[in-house]
Amino acid sequence: MARSYLFVPGNVPRMLQHAEVFEADALIFDLEDAVSLEEKDEARQLVRSFLQTHPPSQPAYVRVNADALARDFSILDGLPIHGVVLPKASIQTLASLREQLDGEEWSVLALVETPSAFLELSDLARDPGVDGLILGGVDLRAALHAHPTESGIELLYARSRLLMAARAYGIEAIDTPYAESDDAGFETDLKRSVALGFDAKCAIHPNQVPPLNAAFTPSQERIREARRIVERHEQTGEVRFSLDGRMVDRPVLEEAKQLLERAKRYKALKKEADDAD
């Protein structure tokens, strides 16, 4: 589980050697779109050499090329990585990936970025090898003949559909990165990701990571509220009660527990003493 997945272009030494310090919960070393065709072989060697020498402290993924899986996997052997990101995910590319994985216990994040992938989304999400779905907004927009809008209306269905599938099968829902460079647009897009219910979002620039982490970390106000709900439940054993005029039942209680768990994972739980400040 992570809030932020930072894409790191595979053929830029300067970016690789500093990637670890930008506070991303997970890193995705990119052999695909960030690397031109002529540089694929160089990027493979560079990513391999880097991960062998300086394994980052956070989970590392490699985004492979769907059309060059064998060559990409030839350099992944023995690397300290957590998983791979499969672009243009489909039942077919997933099957090819499984062949390459050859029993390796790497996590797979499926990048959902084609209309056909949405038609098979349940099967992708149900696959026991797939731990999360990432929305690939840029490619999907192009395939749909859609344009980026401020309201994000053009991706609303895709986002919601992906969330349904992820939630139905209990895997992670990771939103598409914001591809423009304006800060205001990024903030709006980020708020939308959180409101829809995504667990995390991709970042394509290190400067996107701190606001992204903050947005996916439960606020102190919500933590306090969740804590009161859980404490009341623990003290009384009740699963249905009223708190400050609000009805609490099992789903609300479950939501509060989840929120506290997330807060704990992201070190947002302060001691009671700090709360008093």
């Binding site: 500093h18 290190p206 400067n207």
Partner: peptide
């Protein structure tokens, strides 16, 4: 600076 290292 917009340099991510500098901002960090």
């Amino acid at each position: 600076t917009r340099d991510p290292l500098g901002l960090k």
